[in-house]
Design a protein around this nucleic acid. Structure first.
Lengths: 248, 248
DNA sequence: CACAATACCTTATGCCGTAAGGAGTTTCAC
DNA sequence: GTGAAACTCCTTACGGCATAAGGTATTGTG
């Protein structure tokens, strides 16, 4: 019974992603005027996800925010999965191309990384979106293009370039994830890092008395008291980036 | 009405994570013998997740695999969230500590990274598990300890060590994610990388004729024909790792 | 005006996690 | 030996989810 709709889908998805840029946009315009737009839906969905995470993102919640039912959204967007793809791409629109300062490509790479990280932290749900295949929307594409432009003066061979770009993305995503987790843990549990750690440490001491014998290096490392979890993640990111750039 | 159960939870979660190691294990043993064990449930859940992903992981599915109902699992595990934590930690048990070859710490780091990546690829759902706060189960802890042991001869200061470790995790996770996505896309859509790319490229040519003008560097990079998406991700990982280690 | 196309709604299906409470089984205290 | 307690496992039910199906109202075209 399933009419093998898998074929027509990428066409529609791509058309949605590149809407406004794509050429066809023929307005047929019979029937009632659309009260919504894809953009409005995507924006509303992003707001919902920012507020309540990807778990709190339901078609009902998005519809409600727009004064519509969940089902009405399906006029504009084929499935929730596609809506998330659109949100993902749209969120990347916040990242501007780095200002051209042709002398120092390392500085440009650093500023790009910082901006991307900021974007991830503004929309932590981005880090949970799992793609099968890259999305290839216009804004995500622009982000890729802009890091390539920043790295252009370094004159890397294609394989090396790919490696550096992919490592940069990994580093930014990884650090953003750490920071986002530190934040969300602090707000959802309502405890400070300190409190959480002391509780956890007490429990561990009871449950696993020989922890220090089993994991001496871990203990030694965490003995350097981490007062601010988020700041530690930030520092680790900066240092990691510096190491990577030194290695290029 | 909610009796503020948030307090007692970490205790129970930790006790579950460190079961077998923890001291208390007092068998009360009134009532019928348990037909299941936490380990069996965790193993079954891992199998389900390996087969159907985290989306396909439902309490009903896990119960069914064990010939029980979904509700019976709640005797052993407080919520699905905790079950996933247990799965996460258990999956890390597959990683063995690197053989000691004291001369070459870089080689040890590389082998550690390779093993971790293999683990992520065997259980791609690991990459979707988002923690608030680190899990701190025994096996994950052992993985951390083993990379610290590998890096010990490098004699890094604490901050630098933290940066390197966190960068390594990011790199491994990021590359594993790319590879896993390449694989899943290939299997779920049933097309080869080649087919998928040509279809996509044709659609893009129709929708966005000036793509090459907008994103010249992206086009130039992808012109180097990628025949095998997974292999490209693998190469990028190795090169990225080499760059990072060179930077240390 | 009639008709086609469209937007939006209500309803229904089949999933999900899990709360509530009942039935059967085993052990302990007496 | 006999309750009572403790325990496992089950059935049922609730509210929420994405979305399929189909109805109704609104708009433009002939």
């Amino acid at each position: 019974m399933v009419l093998y709709a898998g074929q027509g889908d990428p066409q529609r998805t791509l058309a949605l992603l590149w809407r406004g840029i794509a050429a066809d946009s023929a307005r047929t315009s019979r029937g009632p005027k659309p009260a919504l737009t894809v953009d409005a839906i995507v924006d509303a969905a992003i707001t919902v996800a920012d507020e309540s995470g990807l778990d709190g993102l339901s078609m009902r919640a998005v519809g409600e925010r727009l004064g519509r039912t969940a089902m009405s959204l399906y006029t504009y967007v084929p499935t929730k999965r596609e809506l998330i793809d659109l949100m993902y791409d749209q969120a990347h629109a916040e990242i501007s191309a780095p200002a051209r300062s042709p002398g120092d490509w390392r500085a440009e790479v650093e500023s790009w990384a910082g901006e991307l990280q900021t974007c991830y932290l503004r929309h932590p749900w981005l880090l949970q979106v799992s793609h099968a295949r890259p999305v290839l929307g216009p804004h995500e594409q622009a982000v890729l293009e802009s890091i390539l432009r920043a790295l252009d003066p370094a004159g890397l061979p294609p394989a090396g370039l790919r490696a550096v770009v992919s490592s940069l993305f990994s580093l930014v995503r990884g650090s953003a994830r750490s920071i986002a987790e530190a934040r969300s843990a602090a707000t959802t549990t309502g405890t400070t890092d300190q409190e959480w750690w002391t509780t956890r440490a007490r429990l561990m001491r009871e449950l696993v008395p020989d922890f220090a014998d089993r994991f001496p290096l871990s203990v030694r490392l965490s003995c350097e008291q981490v007062t601010d979890w988020e700041q530690a993640a930030r520092d680790a990111f900066c240092d990691g980036l510096a190491i990577l750039l030194k290695g290029v």
